[in-house]
């Protein structure tokens, strides 16, 4: 009874904060679970089973359906974001790792690392619409805000492939540095950021021209350059601030989206890979695979404000839109 009233009081206190509470879903690759956080209290509110080796994670535009790549089950699990009940699965092709939803909410574009293809899945009919051959070891998936282009990165071919979402044909290929892991468009679609984990750079690409306009490099005193391995990239919707997760250097770089200069490095947990904003972009959550926690970054002050212990080897993260 006593404990309950404390929780109630905490909830009451939290409710007075201006931020809206959203659920934050974290996929735990080794734990085979999803940890659910509350973006307002920054506490773990639930954990549920997610299939074998959950990695890529995303959510439908209405916030009702949570999509999780169960890499070792070769399927995409679809969960009810309220009840955490598994509703059904989607055909994904073998070893799905990362995916992206079309801005309209359908279809889902899945990178199949094992088969050098991108699988396009209709999430309502639950059928495969197309398989697009790409380079060796496809991984990163980004979609342009107008939904016309899906970009896939292939880790051994070292390319960003621009796939036309109407014809499923590759329009453009851009050669980037070694082992591209992630592709992220700006909200206005004018720029595309592609991180190269082993190359240690982020390529800033003009999607219209299909050309690299700048390569962002990283340097942290006291950290060996080999540890600066860019993976996840997130850009504020005004395009002004870019966050880059730097893997085993345990840092997130804050990059100026206009000058492309690195302005700051934030110390987070160990082996930071993926990140997600709250819808109001006040907070950014990072998954730290080797310290089993999530760091919470306050976007305005560019400070790490909290670490939250989650499941074993957190991999991906998505925040519910509502």
């Amino acid at each position: 009874m006593y404990a309950r009233s404390i929780i109630a009081a905490a909830a009451l206190f939290a409710a007075t904060l201006p931020a809206q509470a959203n659920k934050v879903f974290v996929s735990n690759e080794k734990g085979n679970t999803i940890t659910v956080l509350d973006s307002e209290t920054l506490e773990v509110i639930d954990t549920f089973d997610a299939g074998q080796r959950p990695r890529g994670i995303t959510i439908s535009n209405d916030g009702k359906h949570l999509y999780v790549c169960a890499s070792d089950d070769d399927i995409v699990n679809v969960f009810d974001a309220e009840t955490y009940e598994r509703l059904h699965t989607l055909p994904s092709g073998p070893d799905p790792e990362l995916f992206v939803l079309h801005p309209s909410g359908n279809p889902l574009y899945i990178a199949n690392e094992d088969d050098n293809i991108v699988t396009v899945v209709d999430v309502e009919k639950r059928t495969v619409l197309a398989e697009v051959p790409v380079g060796v070891e496809p991984e990163g998936m980004g979609v342009s805000p107008d939904g016309k282009i899906v970009v896939n990165t292939s880790e051994t071919t070292n390319m960003a492939h621009f796939i036309n979402t109407e014809t499923f044909e590759i329009d453009t290929n851009v050669l980037v540095d070694q082992r591209p892991r992630f592709a992220q468009f700006t909200a206005d679609g004018s720029l595309l950021y592609v991180s190269s984990e082993i190359g240690g750079t982020v390529s800033v690409i003009d999607p219209e021209a299909g050309e690299i306009i700048k390569k962002i490099e990283f340097e942290v005193p006291g950290i060996v350059p080999e540890a600066l391995q860019p993976v996840g990239v997130r850009v504020t919707s005004d395009g002004k601030t870019v966050f880059v997760a730097l893997g085993p250097s345990n840092r997130v770089a804050v990059v100026n989206g206009e000058t492309f200069e690195v302005e700051k490095y934030l110390l987070v947990g160990q082996r930071v890979w993926q990140m997600a904003f709250t819808p109001d972009e006040k907070l950014l959550f990072t998954t730290n695979g080797n310290s089993n926690d999530v760091s919470v970054i306050d976007v305005a002050s560019q400070k790490v404000i909290k670490s939250i212990a989650v499941g074993e080897q957190p991999w991906g993260v998505v925040v519910a839109p509502n």
């Binding site: 009919k125 059928t127 495969v128 197309a130 398989e131 697009v132 590759i170």
Partner: peptide, 19 residues
């Protein structure tokens, strides 16, 4: 239903192959 999707799939793949 599955027949239809296979058809679409084949279409997508062959279009790409031609290109």
């Amino acid at each position: 239903k599955s027949g239809f999707s296979t058809f679409l799939l084949a279409l997508g793949v062959s279009a790409l192959a031609v290109l």
